[in-house]
Design a protein around this nucleic acid. Structure first.
Lengths: 190, 190
DNA sequence: TCGAATGTCTAGCGCTGCTAGCATCGAACT
DNA sequence: AGTTCGATGCTAGCAGCGCTAGACATTCGA
């Protein structure tokens, strides 16, 4: 069975290669530049090979998004864990979230803006997604009033940050006021 | 000069026809269905005619977005003006905003999600945009503390609503909790 | 060693946004 | 009134898109 194992290993390796190439191409030149032809050229295989690994281009984007969400979850965890005070922890988490969106806009787009059929907010959501949302819940929970549903409150905070992230990215808010906007938001929620 | 005037009238008419057709097509079948060929067929002209009116497809999308923003501004004005109490006025405006996003997702996308080079937040912004933002400012201003910059506060509230609108639309938040999320948000800002 | 199976490639389909170049038609001038 | 000329809208086509059918090696198991 060693031959089969080797093949599976090579296959997994190539799978990773495709996802990484797609991510790099998206981050450096934007998603418009991620065409099946350019991607195939990057990984030095022909186009149809991509389709033996993924059902279509959307599936590749989804794989990149999922990987990125895992990365984001880890950053959120680290930011939150670095502070004992709930207020500082929430601020650090929010800052880490906005930083991620600002520095890696293409990945952020794939995760939370582009239409990609990841199931959100259900028990069938991928673990990376549940982990990321869990970090938000943990950071927000200390500020829930007695009447507040924690999950709802978390969704509201996340949405508020998401709104700032996307409108910033689209240059639809005044530049140089990022910090002020985050301060105002946090002042109302913590 | 009557002949020239007639031509200009016909040209303006056709301009309107193109924008309206694009809007209708986008609203009924989504932006993916808005191709230059289908659009040309709708207005019963050949493709190149579109390019004598607009620099490219992006310019058509921009025109649709601008028209829609004017419409949104009017709805926000009406919602706000219907209430004397600042709290009720803000709630009505927020509700109108989210309703618009939910019922006309394609237009909302063109306005605030897709990349269109409308200049936001500057003195050169189109009047429709300034009007819409002005409604937000008027609704939010009564709730600004002494230390708050009104414009910043407005951007924060708008971003928060925008976040809810887009995440709702992408089915990234739990359905059936729209109202609860709006309530939580308003409870913290008014 | 030979047939079967696996894996990869070339070539091509029906789209896309966009444009060069050619008719056609009406206004204006002799 | 006849001719010229410019404006206007058309046909046809380019390069590139996501995706796939079918041919071609290459490698495996008997």
């Amino acid at each position: 069975m060693s031959i089969q194992e080797r093949r599976e290993r090579e296959r997994a390796e190539r799978h990773r290669l495709i996802v990484d190439a797609a991510q790099e191409l998206a981050e450096t030149e934007g998603w418009d530049a991620v065409t099946t032809r350019r991607l195939a050229e990057r990984v030095e295989y022909s186009q149809p090979v991509l389709y033996s690994h993924f059902k279509g281009k959307d599936a590749i984007v989804r794989a990149v998004a999922l990987q990125a969400i895992g990365d984001l979850a880890e950053r959120l965890r680290a930011a939150r864990a670095a502070h004992r005070s709930p207020a500082k922890a929430l601020r650090a988490l929010a800052q880490a979230y906005l930083d991620f969106a600002a520095t890696r806009p293409a990945l952020y787009d794939a995760m939370f803006v582009r239409e990609v059929d990841l199931s959100f907010g259900t028990d069938e959501s991928p673990p990376e997604l549940r982990a990321a949302f869990g970090e938000f819940v943990a950071a927000v929970a200390p500020f829930a009033g007695d009447d507040d549903d924690v999950e709802t409150l978390t969704e509201v905070v996340w949405s508020a940050l998401h709104g700032q992230a996307t409108l910033n990215q689209g240059r639809r808010l005044r530049p140089d006021h990022h910090q002020a906007r985050l301060d105002v938001l946090l002042s109302r929620f913590s």
